[in-house]
Simulated scan of single mutants.
Amino acid sequence: MSSVNVNYKEPKKILTPTSGFLYGYSHSLNPYSGCSFACSYCYVRQSPVGLFRNEEWGTWIDIKQGVQEKITKEINHLKKRGKPVTIFMSSSTDPYQPVEYKEKVTRTLLEAMVETPPDFLFVQTRSPLVTRDIDLFEKLSDRLRISMTIETDRDEIRKVFSPSAPPIQARLKAIRQLQEHNLPTQVAIAPILPFSEDYPRILSTVVDRVVVDDFTGDGSQGKRTERLKIKELYPEENIDMWYGPTTLATVIGKMKAVFEDDQVFISQDGFMPF
């Protein structure tokens, strides 16, 4: 973490009302601002939190303080008003990025939600650290889904697009471990990156639910991604297959060749609460 500028801040509120891509949720929950995984294609690079910081995305993290009291108070307040509390964690940071090993902000939030549960909690990550909190997830399992992003099974591709993100095999091992504890899980191929012909079969041995999303899921129908010039990172011989208008349909077809139709979800549908 020596190359990352870490700051401690106490926000006024911890839950943020949602809209747009996350229309099915009442709130998003981001334990941190900033993300040291610094994925090249991350849409947050082109959002206000990424654009107006005057620091390169991936080089700074704000650690939120006082979160346990805040989320307990906010959930209770919403429930007293008769409002549904469906939470997406996280929409603009990874709740299990490396700083979480030490700071445990995400774990603190989960501990509070075990005592004061929301109606539904969706946990989105690409980090094997998520398995540390299995004990808390088990207490929330009737109102929970954990989504692990695994965009490809080719680690050499991962190193091009997201070199600071966890290795692919570690993520696959983590999702197996979550499944062994009977926790509701899914794999998100989001965004789609070049993968091997064997990848759909590999996934079918790990989970029974996959979500496929291309770069149109960046909240601006792909415009943010175009500004990031992600297309230039693709191997020239693969560009037409893996980055274009037919990619989504092609990958859905590959997944449905090994999964049942009702186990394959597309874009927003796969991230909605049950």
Rank of each mutant, 00 (worst) to 15 (best):
L136D: 07
P166I: 02
V160I: 11
L140H: 08
K173N: 11
D133K: 04
V123D: 01
K173M: 11
S141F: 12
R171P: 01
D135M: 09
T131G: 01
F195H: 11
S162W: 04
D135H: 14
R126W: 02
V123P: 00
P194Y: 13
K139Q: 13
T125L: 10
F195S: 03
D133P: 03
A190F: 03
S127N: 15
P194W: 11
V130C: 02
S196G: 09
T185E: 01
R171T: 05
A174Q: 03
S141R: 04
S141Q: 05
P191W: 01
D135S: 09
L144K: 02
Q124C: 07
P167L: 04
L178H: 01
Q179M: 12
M148S: 02
R171C: 14
L178P: 01
R201K: 10
T131K: 00
S164C: 15
R154M: 12
I146H: 00
I134P: 02
I134R: 13
Q177V: 06
Q124Y: 07
S127L: 08
L193A: 10
K159W: 14
E151T: 15
F195L: 07
P166N: 04
I157W: 02
S196N: 11
D153M: 12
R201Q: 14
N182L: 09
K173S: 15
Y199G: 02
L140Y: 04
A188M: 14
I146F: 04
L178D: 00
S164Y: 05
N182D: 12
D142W: 03
V123K: 00
I189Y: 15
F195T: 14
M148N: 03
F137N: 03
D198K: 13
P166A: 02
K159Y: 11
K173G: 10
R154T: 13
E138P: 11
V187L: 05
I189S: 12
P167N: 06
A170C: 10
A165M: 15
T125P: 08
L193N: 15
F137V: 08
S127R: 02
I150Y: 02
L172S: 02
A170T: 05
P200N: 03
E156G: 08
F195C: 08
R158D: 07
P167K: 04
L144V: 05
Q177S: 08
S141M: 10
A174P: 06
P167Y: 04
D153H: 06
I189G: 09
D135F: 05
K159P: 12
D133L: 01
K159M: 13
L140R: 08
D155H: 15
L193F: 13
D155S: 06
I175D: 00
I157P: 11
E180G: 15
